[in-house]
Design a protein around this nucleic acid. Structure first.
Lengths: 173, 173
DNA sequence: TTGATTGCAAAGCATTTGCATGCTA
DNA sequence: TAGCATGCAAATGCTTTGCAATCAA
């Protein structure tokens, strides 16, 4: 296992290069926000991240977190996602493959999944309309197996090969 | 062609039934808002609809339009859609097949399309996770053939059979 | 030194809520 | 008549902006 302190070397370099290219400056706040963002493998709202940052440095303000997340997005390190609750969430983007989200409307659990077939179909669809596809968002809303317990017996422990997946977050409410 | 005044008989009935079932009352405002909503085959924000309503009755307020759109959604006549600009839009839902959206990031044009293959794949995907799918949103963002003129020669007039489609709106900016 | 950055407070939006008045059933 | 509906104004929640002070290059 690599030295933990160096885990994000690549990302930090991307960030610094972006700052330089844009004529912006490196600051302690930006470093701290980036570091905490990278350490947290979850969908974070600006506010979520703000509180995490607060734990380490009380002097950092909301505004800076908002602005830095924008910056990280521009740099290609973060990606904005909306789950329909009015807030903007951010997820890792650098070296993270594209994926879609399945959201449980009961517990808020978010499952990331990827389906090459879905991707291919969407590309084909865009091409049919002469659409130059830049990106797409697919959200599947429903009730997850935990919350639909009553009926979940039917599916039981998912059998066979599952697509690539990662359960990212769920609210305990 | 049927009598224009009776075009929305069915929808109005659905609305009235919903009001009754919920113990709510029929009012002139709700009638007017529903009528204008049905007449307008576009994605409407609450504000858009508010101004259309204003033309016919200056006394109707923002709040009532907001509340009535919620009501229409509950009644199954409208569906909320978000295009990522922070506003909530509404589209017809009753007797309108499910479809997805392709959005041009240059001119804002919205193309509605439907792909049975995509639907099937999503259903299959949900099932694999024991997810009881209630609905899904797919947004494809990109540059439409008009806006990408330079390269659009490549695609030319879409050849072959296109999927069901309707170009719904575009901003002239 | 110079111009970008920061944090606060205030402003912006879209949407929701409290409440007195009005209207439907 | 009882209780839902309305519209105004105010509140809310998330995000952005103005600005004086601060800091990196």
């Amino acid at each position: 296992m690599a030295d933990r302190k160096n885990d994000f070397q690549k990302e930090e370099q991307v960030f610094l290069e972006h700052l330089q290219k844009a004529g912006l400056k490196r600051t302690a706040q930006r470093d701290l926000i980036l570091e905490i963002f990278l350490r947290t493998e979850e969908h974070l709202s600006s506010e979520d991240l703000y509180w995490l940052v607060q734990k380490q440095d009380q002097s950092v303000g909301h505004t800076t977190v908002y602005r830095t997340l924008k910056l990280l997005t521009e740099a290609g390190l973060a990606r904005e996602v909306r789950f329909g609750d009015g807030k903007t969430y951010y997820e890792h983007h650098y070296n993270h493959e594209h994926h879609d989200h399945m959201i449980c409307t009961e517990c808020g659990k978010v499952i990331e999944f990827f389906s090459p077939e879905l991707e291919a179909l969407q590309d084909a669809m865009a091409e049919k309309f002469g659409f130059k596809l830049t990106h797409h968002n697919l959200r599947i809303l429903g009730v997850c197996s935990d919350c639909g317990k009553m009926e979940s017996e039917l599916y039981s422990a998912a059998s066979g090969a599952l697509p690539r997946v990662r359960v990212v977050s769920g609210k305990t409410k």
